Simulated assay, not measured.
Amino acid sequence: MVKVLLTGAAGFLGSKLLEILLERGYDVVAVFHVRELGVEHPRLVKIRGDLAEVELPPADLAIHAAAMTDVDKCEVEREACWRSNVIATRRVARRAPTIYISTDYVFPGDRGMYREEDVPAPVNYYGLTKLLGEEAVLASGGWVVRTSGVYGVGGGKRSFPEAVVERLSRGEEVAAAADQRYSPTYSGLLAQAVAELLEAEERPPLLHVAGPPLTRHQFAMAVAEAFGLPKELVRPIPADQLRWTAKRPRDSSLDTTAARRILKTPFHDLGLSLAMFKKEWEARGHAHRVG
């Protein structure tokens, strides 16, 4: 039986990957750190600890989904960011052939719809450390999956659409950037795509797996519509009014043509993504009301 080392196993993506891998019969060594991993299974070994220090067992393959992803925090706490996104990644890549979950923020954001062959040029420290992680994985013969704005429910931090639903349900206004575009990606479909790639005959070294290109305002409007919440409370604003610490790419959207040719998973389908997100939201016992 194939043994998979899965990092970030308690996050938006990792928790869903863990479920899929166990369903498909893999032996899984799940590494987690801050959040508790409340899963038990006879083919699951759990390891809690800092990836930069914890002893990693041998495995046939690794899926490295762990990272420090708070962009502003990465800009300020650079030592912690380097430790999480560079040192830990190098350790995983040396331990097993690795599928590495990377980011659209490796690109400068000057034009958007970036292809796999486009040259990265990150504009913030988070993007720089993720790019260095990519280089470590590729140098070790692994694979890089770039994605964007991963969202879900209960991943340890509140995702953007969760915040949108919560605020609109209370009748509160949501301000969302109308001049910053990315490719928000539902974690459940991303997990399915990565699991599919695990078994695919064709596995290119670099692949973009992400949702359709949207501004944050367009995405917030789509979330409001999917949940039947008042779209008139979603207010478009310039991104520079959000007072971020770290610079963000203006348009980091990803071209996913290659992945849509290789993979059957409909990760690019916004309607399906939001329907699945809503179902997950409601299954977790959340309720929403208008007004």
Rank of each mutant, 00 (worst) to 15 (best):
A10W: 10
G14Y: 01
S15H: 02
K16C: 13
L18Y: 09
E19S: 14
E19W: 01
I20Y: 15
L22K: 02
R24Y: 12
G25F: 07
Y26P: 08
Y26V: 08
D27C: 14
V28K: 02
V29N: 02
R35M: 13
V39H: 05
H41Q: 05
V45G: 00
I47E: 01
R48M: 06
L51K: 00
A52H: 06
V54A: 01
A59G: 04
H64M: 03
C74H: 10
C74A: 10
E75P: 06
A88D: 07
T89N: 06
T103F: 05
Y105P: 02
F107K: 12
E116T: 11
E117A: 06
P120S: 05
A121D: 13
P122S: 10
N124R: 06
Y126K: 09
L132V: 05
E134G: 09
G149D: 15
V150F: 03
R158N: 10
R158V: 15
R167S: 09
R170H: 11
E173Q: 10
V174E: 04
A175P: 03
A176Q: 04
A176F: 02
P184V: 04
E199S: 07
A200W: 14
E202Y: 06
R203G: 03
V209N: 11
R216W: 14
R216M: 11
A220G: 07
M221G: 08
M221F: 01
V223Y: 07
F227V: 04
F227L: 02
L229I: 02
P238K: 14
P238V: 12
A239T: 09
L242P: 04
A246V: 11
K247L: 07
R248M: 08
P249H: 07
S253W: 04
A258E: 15
A258N: 09
A259W: 13
L263C: 07
P266G: 08
F277A: 00
E280S: 11
E280Q: 14
